[in-house]
């Protein structure tokens, strides 16, 4: 009976070690999220695509940060809170979120020189938090 108990314990120990080896070394290692840089890249890509379609310049020309924010839906994970703010040379032209109570936030900027025949330097900034 004791011999069977030892065998069982050894078996469990071996099983534990094998399981952890398989989990750690044989499974392809899960790609880390590199969270913040990935979120920034996604937001930037979203802005870049909007710029290529012409939507970004149009919305910035209209000072429509809400439309830009909605257009970014496909590119930024849902669980992230975000806000889009348009800046000119001196100040923000649209509402800026209050980030004082938020521990960690990140932001991405996209610069625009204006639209056709209408020079206006703008910084479109996407703030993200809640990660």
């Amino acid at each position: 009976m004791k011999g069977q108990l030892y065998t069982l314990e050894v078996g469990i120990a071996i099983l534990m070690i094998l399981s952890i080896i398989i989990f750690l070394f044989l499974n392809p290692s899960a790609s880390p999220e590199y969270s913040t840089i990935n979120y920034k890249t996604r937001a930037y890509k979203g802005l870049e695509i909007l710029e290529r379609t012409g939507d970004l310049r149009r919305h910035v020309s209209d000072n429509n940060a809400t439309a830009i924010n909605e257009s970014l839906d496909p590119y930024i994970p849902d669980f992230l809170s975000r806000a889009v703010v348009i800046f000119n040379d001196t100040t923000n032209l649209t509402a800026k979120p209050s980030l004082s109570s938020i521990n960690d936030s990140i932001s991405v900027s996209y610069f625009l020189a204006g639209d056709f025949d209408d020079y206006n330097a703008r910084d479109v900034r996407v703030y993200m938090w809640g990660y």
């Binding site: 840089i37 990935n38 890249t41 870049e48 610069f111 625009l112 020189a113 025949d117 209408d118 020079y119």
Partner: peptide, 27 residues
């Protein structure tokens, strides 16, 4: 990997600045 991702992100951001500087002339 994280360093590479940061570097790639910054390069894309820098390309935005260069493109817009040239675009000032077009505008």
């Amino acid at each position: 990997r994280e360093k590479e991702l940061k570097s790639r992100f910054e390069k894309e951001f820098f390309s935005n600045i260069v493109d817009e500087l040239v675009k000032v002339i077009d505008i």
